[in-house]
Design a protein around this nucleic acid. Structure first.
Length: 507
DNA sequence: CGGCATCACTATAGAGTGATGCCGGTGCACTATT
C-alpha cells in the first residue's frame, strides 16, 4: 500500500481511491496546476480534502453556491473535521469575524467568487500561506463568468495576490472550448488534465418534438404512464415549472413539488430534502435545481425546454442513474421553446444600442458610472457586467469615467467582444438544436461534440436507434446494487434548517 | 419571438377592440478604520 493510500485510510477511512482521485491528488501535491473532469458522485471533493490535510498552508475552495459551502462544512464537521470553515452571507457578522480572526485554524476555507472580489478579504488571506486554490464546479467560470457572475473572471487576479498557489479546477462536464476557457481565465500553467468520459451508457436518450404547447402537455401526460421514478423535470420558466408540477400531480397522481429561484430558501431546502428522502416522485424545476444534488438513484430526467448548450444538457441529464441503473432522459419540446431559449441567451448580453448610450457622447452618459447606469435604466446584471468590463478596460476608475483614455476605442473593443461572445453562444445553441433532427443518433452527436470514442452497442441507446422503447419502473427493481458511497446523513438538512431558522431569528 | 398586462378608445354606461410595452433562468453580496 502506497503512502498516499495510507494517508487516505488514516484521514478518511477509505481503503482505496476511486478512478482518477489518486492521479489528481498526486498532481496537486507535485504542485502542478490541475484540471479534472469527474462526474458528480465520483468523489470530487476528496481531490482537495486530502491535499488540504497533507499541505502545510491553507486550501481555498471557490464554490458557486453558498448552500453548497455550508452543506460541505456541516458534513465535514459531522465527521469530526474541525479545520473547515466557510465565509458567506449566510454567516452572521459575529460568525464572520470569528472565521477571519482564527484564519490560522483552518486548513479548508470555502468562499464565493464575490467574496473574494473584496480587496480587504484578499489582503487578510494573503497574510497566510495559501497552498492550494480550488475552483469547484469550474464550468461556472465559462458558463457564468462572462456575463452573469463576472467575479469569476477576477479569480486569476485573486490567485496572484495570494502568491500564485497551485490551482485545481474541478467540474463534471466541459467541452474542449470550456476547458481552454478555464485554463486561460485561471492563468493555469501547463496544467495536468484528467478526464473521465462524459458518455453515460445507462441513460436512454429521447427527444420528442411537438407542434404546440397543447401537444406537449399531452405527450408529457402520456409519458408519465409507467415511467421510472424518481424524476427531475426541467422547465424553461418558473411558471412552467409550477404548472407542470400541478399537471403531474393531477394526472399522474405523483407526489410533486416545484423548485425555482422564486421559492423561499426554507422551502427550497425542504423540497430538496424531501426529494433526497424519497418523499417526492418528481421535482419540476428551472435550472436552479441540481448543482450539488447528491442522489444516486434518480431514474428520469425530463426536459420541457431546450437547454442552451450540449454541456448544459449533459449536466442536467447526468443527474440520472449515478448508481449505474437503467435510467432515461426524455425531452419534450415545441417550436416556442426553441425560440425562448434563443431569446434568453441573446438577452444575456446588452445590445449595441445600450452600449452606445452609456459611453461619452451617448444619451445617458454622465461622469459617474452609477448615475449613468441609473439613467440608462440598466438592470442589475448589465450594471455589474458593464462595470466590470469598463473597469477592466480602464474606462472607469473608482466609479468615475476616465476621459484621458480613448473611450471610443474601448467602446469598439467591447462591442466586438460582445459580438463574438453572442456568436459563440449561438453556435453552442445550434449544436443543441441538432438534437431535434429526427434521424441522427443523439449519442453520436454528443460523442462527436466531446470527441469521444464510440462504445459497444447499447441495448437502449436513443429514440433514433431504438424507437418505441421506454424505461419504466420495472426495469430497475432489485436488479443492481446502489452505490456504497457515503451520502448525506439525514442529520445534515436538519442542521441546515436550524442554521437558517437561527439566522432569521437573529435578523 | 409570443404571451400577457395595461391602457386608451369606442360607443354609450359595462364591456369589447386594438395598440403598446414588457418579460422570460441562473446567485452573490450589500462592513470596518484600530
Amino acid at each position: 500500500m502506497s503512502d498516499l493510500e495510507n494517508e487516505l485510510r488514516r484521514h478518511f477511512g477509505y481503503r482505496s481511491f476511486r478512478p482518477y482521485q489518486k492521479e489528481v491528488v498526486e498532481s496537486v501535491l507535485a504542485e502542478s496546476d490541475t484540471i479534472a473532469f469527474l462526474p458528480t458522485g465520483m468523489g470530487k471533493s476528496l481531490c482537495y480534502q486530502l491535499p488540504a490535510k497533507l499541505m502545510t498552508g491553507l486550501t481555498i475552495v471557490v464554490s458557486p453556491l453558498v448552500s453548497l459551502m455550508e452543506d460541505q462544512v456541516i458534513q465535514l464537521r459531522s465527521k469530526g473535521e474541525k479545520n473547515a470553515a466557510h465565509l458567506s452571507s449566510l454567516l452572521s457578522n459575529e460568525e464572520r469575524r470569528f472565521v477571519l480572526k482564527h484564519l490560522n485554524r483552518w486548513s479548508l476555507l470555502f468562499v464565493s467568487p464575490e467574496m473574494l472580489s473584496q480587496q480587504w478579504l484578499v489582503k487578510k488571506l494573503a497574510a497566510r500561506k495559501v497552498s492550494l486554490f480550488v475552483v469547484d464546479e469550474a464550468h461556472c467560470i465559462s458558463q457564468w463568468g462572462h456575463e452573469f457572475r463576472t467575479d469569476y473572471l477576477r479569480l486569476a487576479d485573486v490567485r496572484k495576490s495570494l502568491g500564485q498557489p497551485v490551482c485545481l479546477a474541478l467540474t463534471a462536464t466541459a467541452t474542449q472550448e470550456v476547458e481552454e476557457d478555464i485554463v486561460s481565465k485561471m492563468h493555469m500553467v501547463r496544467p495536468e488534465r484528467f478526464r473521465a468520459p462524459v458518455n453515460r451508457g445507462n441513460i436512454f436518450l429521447q427527444v420528442h418534438t411537438c407542434e404546440n404547447e397543447y401537444e406537449k402537455q399531452r405527450e408529457f401526460v402520456k409519458y408519465l404512464q409507467g415511467f421510472a421514478q424518481p424524476a427531475i423535470c426541467y422547465a424553461g420558466t418558473r411558471q412552467d415549472a409550477e404548472d407542470y408540477a400541478h399537471l403531474a400531480a393531477k394526472t399522474g397522481g405523483l407526489r410533486t413539488a416545484y423548485y425555482h429561484g422564486g421559492v423561499s430558501k426554507e422551502d427550497r431546502i425542504m423540497i430538496q430534502q424531501q426529494f433526497l428522502n424519497d418523499e417526492l416522485d418528481m421535482i419540476c424545476a428551472t435550472n436552479a435545481f441540481g448543482m450539488g444534488i447528491d442522489k444516486s438513484d434518480i431514474r428520469t430526467i425530463i426536459h420541457l425546454y431546450l437547454p442552451q448548450s450540449v454541456e448544459q444538457y449533459l449536466q442536467e441529464t447526468g443527474r440520472a442513474g449515478r448508481d449505474g441503473g437503467q435510467s432515461a432522459a426524455k425531452m419534450i419540446v415545441a417550436g416556442d421553446d426553441v425560440r425562448l431559449s434563443l431569446r434568453m441567451l441573446q438577452r444575456d448580453l446588452p445590445d449595441s444600442r445600450i452600449i452606445a448610450s452609456i459611453f461619452p457622447g451617448g444619451l445617458y452618459h454622465r461622469p459617474f458610472w452609477n448615475e449613468t447606469a441609473e439613467l440608462a435604466g440598466l438592470e442589475d446584471i448589465y450594471h455589474r457586467m458593464l462595470h466590470f468590463y469598463l473597469e477592466q478596460a480602464g474606462a472607469l476608475k473608482e466609479g468615475k469615467w476616465d476621459y484621458t483614455v480613448q473611450t471610443e476605442e474601448i467602446k469598439e473593443r467591447l462591442l466586438e467582444r460582445f459580438r463574438r461572445r453572442r456568436f459563440e453562444k449561438e453556435r453552442q445553441y445550434k449544436k443543441m438544436q441538432e438534437f431535434l433532427n429526427k434521424d441522427t443518433c443523439i449519442r453520436a452527436l454528443i460523442r462527436d461534440y466531446f470527441n469521444e470514442e464510440p462504445e459497444s452497442q447499447l441495448s437502449l441507446c436513443c429514440n433514433v436507434c431504438h424507437p418505441n422503447s421506454q424505461v419504466d419502473a420495472k426495469m430497475n427493481a432489485g436488479s443492481f446494487q446502489t452505490d456504497s458511497a457515503p451520502v448525506n446523513g439525514s442529520g445534515s438538512w436538519r442542521n441546515m434548517l436550524q442554521t437558517i431558522l437561527r439566522q432569521s431569528e437573529e435578523t
